[in-house]
Design a protein around this nucleic acid. Structure first.
Length: 831
DNA sequence: AGCACGCCGACT
DNA sequence: GTCGGCGTGCTC
């Protein structure tokens, strides 16, 4: 190393880069001499990958070792003088790739906002040196004449002009005849936001110069007015240094300045126009040092958390609904920020758009960044860069904000840590943001605070095992009391025929008295749409998706049948497509129907609905919440969306329409999810002075989960659930790897899954391999799904070795010609 | 994952 | 005879 240093200047520099493709390894490129001093780990480069792809890559290693077996290509461009990805991030990317069994490129793809990636598009252009027109067919000739009138064309545009799908052949022929040139146009996606400003040229910056200028313009009133208007914004006589910043062009326009007089003064060399890059985020004043008033109980919890952090990396904060966790978070965030470290506050997607962000903004102002999926790419790039350059020391964001370029984290808060939306589902990496947060914190010597009123069984288990610190807060904030929770036996009511549209008398009476008292009601039903399916009473037809093994949900508002798995929709008029009968009944109940029924029962009430369908538009969610907060709405009907972090003052009644689906779901986590969901929904009631009531309609009032819910007994629930989990070797005693085998051919998928399960159980033992079984929805988008589950004891199994083994067996499976079409998807720590 | 190359059926 | 179908194998 020491000896080589001398000639390293002469040696060719190579870089190993991460590419956004699902291929396991890094790729080595050669660095042109003129860039060799500037390449750094974490900088982006543009490279050619394959014959016709140009991609953005990240430098992971800089070295001098020419690859022995192939000729490295040159990098085409270096995009960053200063790296945009930190070494800590590169480490995290590869940790995530390894742990969740995917490729580092896939992690990079999710982590980097699209605005930091460059895409290329192949375009064609007329070759100016072309001189053999006799080689061309007449069609080619007409096409070339068209091309000459254009600057360049994309492949798509060529296709549209020729009315052809596949234009490769045409283009290839023309290239062979040297009539056209193909080139790659790089698209830089990020565009800074630019503000146009006007200012006086430097020579006029003095008081005398300005007065002279005004005199000299005596003949043209408009121009003189313009200068005077300008001076009203920038008093040059008193503060000449203000001229440098200038005045926004739009402000002058608003004051009645015309474009033409502006142009004249610009042409005369008196004014000049400048462009300033500005942030997309509004400046908002905060008061980061604002002292947060904590109750005694809150203060004690906050101190206790800080104390536990002395010895524990992770602290689980179990604070019941309405206990005022946010104030404690703010208190802790202030302490960490004051010490100069960064803070990341993770929230589930839904909770993020709402009240809590407003409250945090009030304290932290624009020193806090928000990172959210409804943000545009440009906005995301600005948050990224702001974290990098220190503008933002504090970020509030959804799960993907775990990948922002932090280098000095002091604290990560994971609020609602039990939320399953922290686990990414569909494209790889299938990571759990809470668990990644803990890894990242270990790497950066930061602390992690997991907060929840209903902690996940896993986290509480770690706390009980003394791996995490545990702090509990069991009183509500202020004078608020926990709501009284009652179960309503709808089976009994049904027998006695007292139900009205499946609402019990008790629930209806409570709603009615709430309406009279001008108090608000929330009705929860975890099913969107009008009804889960339609059923023809004449021929027994049931609306089903032809791509998936599920019934189509009836949405009355849009008059459509929608598949909630593949998104397929068809319009319906509630007539049977088979026999044409109009005697078609909807079966089951979704939020739409509840809204409808309540309208009928309480025509005077203002009812609003909050589910995926009513909140799709950009500000819809905000509007629904706003209307409910302001008291304009009496009853809010919603899916689980209403359970997440919402805080309403005047809700005194929560009705759970039907708890049975939740508690009887066939999944080992169903009990946990049901307990969490019902407790969280119940927690929306009685958060201030008005005491709350919760009514739960169920057919099994004796159910274990419901009994724990009505007694507000989280710990009791935890202990009973733990016994169940241990009996069946489920988490937290084991780690679960879910393997999904997919194919259009059901038999083939089944055979492949069988073969894989067999192979795996040879080394792991039959008891650790469950399945294959048909997936809960056995066909999605015309592919049949089979699942194999590995249950690996945390104390006995070497997880790393098992993953290697699993990888090998999957490769083994898909290299079998017979199974080449099957897809295998691995989900580590499936939830 | 893309994307090119390559080898077989239905058409100007 | 060509066009264009998609199987398979590689990407520094």
């Amino acid at each position: 190393m020491r000896q080589e240093l001398g000639d390293s200047m002469e040696q060719t520099v190579f870089v190993d880069v991460v590419l956004p493709v699902p291929i396991p390894q890094l790729f080595t490129y050669r660095v042109p001499r003129e860039l060799s001093e500037y390449v750094q780990v974490g900088s982006r480069v543009v490279v050619e990958f394959g014959k016709s792809r140009v991609l953005t890559a990240i430098i992971a290693v800089v070295h001098h070792n020419p690859p022995p077996k192939y000729q490295a290509k040159y990098i085409l461009e270096l995009l960053d003088q200063i790296p945009v990805v930190t070494p800590s991030q590169l480490w995290l990317f590869s940790w995530v790739a390894e742990y969740y069994m995917c490729h580092i490129g896939e992690v990079m793809n999710i982590a980097l906002p699209a605005g930091l990636k460059i895409s290329s598009q192949s375009k064609i252009q007329y070759n100016p040196d072309f001189n053999n027109p006799e080689l061309l067919s007449s069609e080619e000739n007409t096409f070339l004449e068209f091309l000459l009138t254009q600057d360049s064309l994309t492949y798509d545009e060529v296709g549209r002009y020729l009315e052809k799908k596949d234009v490769n052949k045409v283009i290839k022929d023309l290239v062979a005849k040297h009539a056209i040139i193909v080139f790659e146009e790089l698209k830089y996606k990020y565009k800074p936001k630019i503000l146009k400003k006007i200012r006086l040229k430097r020579v006029y910056e003095g008081s005398e110069e300005v007065l002279q200028l005004i005199d000299s313009l005596e003949k043209s009133t408009k121009q003189q007015e313009l200068i005077l208007e300008y001076l009203s914004h920038i008093p040059i006589q008193d503060l000449p240094e203000k001229n440098k910043a200038g005045v926004e062009k739009t402000k002058l326009r608003e004051a009645g300045v015309s474009d033409s007089s502006l142009k004249t003064l610009k042409d005369k060399g008196i004014l000049e126009e400048i462009e300033v890059v500005i942030s997309r985020f509004e400046e908002s004043a905060g008061n980061p040092n604002k002292v947060i008033e904590l109750s005694d109980a809150q203060r004690e919890a906050s101190n206790s958390i800080m104390e536990k952090f002395q010895e524990k990396q992770v602290v689980l904060f179990h604070g019941i609904t309405g206990s005022g966790k946010t104030e404690i978070y703010i208190d802790l965030i202030q302490q960490v920020l004051a010490s100069g470290s960064q803070v990341l506050f993770l929230l589930p997607e839904i909770a993020l758009t709402t009240q809590i962000v407003t409250r945090l903004k009030r304290v932290f102002g624009s020193s806090m960044a928000v990172y959210h999926s409804k943000f545009s790419d440009n906005e995301r790039v600005e948050v990224w860069r702001g974290v990098l350059d220190g503008t933002y020391q504090f970020v509030v964001g959804v799960r993907s904000s775990i990948f922002l370029p932090f280098d000095n984290l002091g604290l990560i808060i994971v609020d609602e840590e039990h939320e399953s939306s922290y686990k990414q589902f569909d494209p790889a990496p299938r990571y759990h943001a809470r668990d990644v947060a803990i890894m990242l914190a270990i790497k950066q010597h930061a602390k992690v605070l997991l907060g929840s009123a209903t902690p996940s069984i896993e986290s509480f288990f770690q706390a009980k095992a003394n791996k995490y610190g545990l702090v509990s807060l069991n009183v509500r904030f202020g004078n608020a009391q926990l709501p009284e929770i009652r179960l309503i036996d709808v089976k009994k009511d049904r027998k006695e025929k007292t139900l009205v549209k499946d609402f019990s008398q008790l629930l209806l009476n409570e709603i009615s008295s709430n309406l009279q008292n001008k108090e608000q009601t929330i009705i929860f039903q975890n099913r969107r749409g009008y009804a889960p399916y339609l059923n023809c009473q004449e021929c027994n037809w049931i609306g089903q998706c032809d791509q998936c093994a599920v019934t189509l949900t009836y949405h009355m508002q849009s008059q459509q049948l929608i598949c909630h798995y593949c998104g397929h929709r068809e319009s319906t008029r509630k007539t049977c497509p088979d026999c044409g009968s109009t005697n078609v009944k909807s079966v089951g109940v979704g939020t739409e129907k509840i809204e409808d029924d309540l309208h009928e029962i309480f025509p005077e009430a203002v009812i609003s609905r909050m589910d995926l369908d009513t909140t799709r538009a950009k500000n819809a969610l905000q509007n629904i919440i706003g209307d409910f907060e302001s008291g304009e709405v009496d009853i809010l009907v919603g899916t689980q969306m209403i359970s997440k972090g919402l805080d309403f003052d005047r809700v005194s009644l929560v009705g759970i329409y039907n708890a049975d689906k939740m508690i009887h779901f066939p999944d080992f986590r169903a009990a946990e999810r049901a307990f969490q969901l019902i407790t969280q929904v119940s927690g929306r009631a009685g958060r201030r002075e008005i005491p709350g009531k919760v009514l739960i309609q169920t057919g099994s009032p004796q159910n274990r989960i419901l009994q724990f819910v009505i007694n507000n007994d989280y710990v009791g629930f935890y202990e009973s659930e733990l016994i169940e989990r241990e009996g069946y070797s489920y988490p937290p005693f084991t780690r679960i790897i879910e393997i999904t085998v997919k194919d259009v051919d059901q038999t083939l998928a089944h055979q492949a899954a069988n073969k894989l399960a067999e192979a795996l159980s040879i080394r792991l033992g039959r008891e650790r391999v469950k399945g294959p079984e048909k997936a809960l929805v056995e066909r999605i988008r015309n592919k049949f799904l089979f699942e194999v589950w590995l249950k690996l004891e945390k104390d006995k199994m070497n997880i790393q070795a098992t993953k290697e083994y699993l990888k090998k067996e999957i490769v083994n499976l898909v290299t079998d010609k017979k199974f080449k079409s099957v897809q295998v998807i691995v989900n580590v720590d499936a939830v």
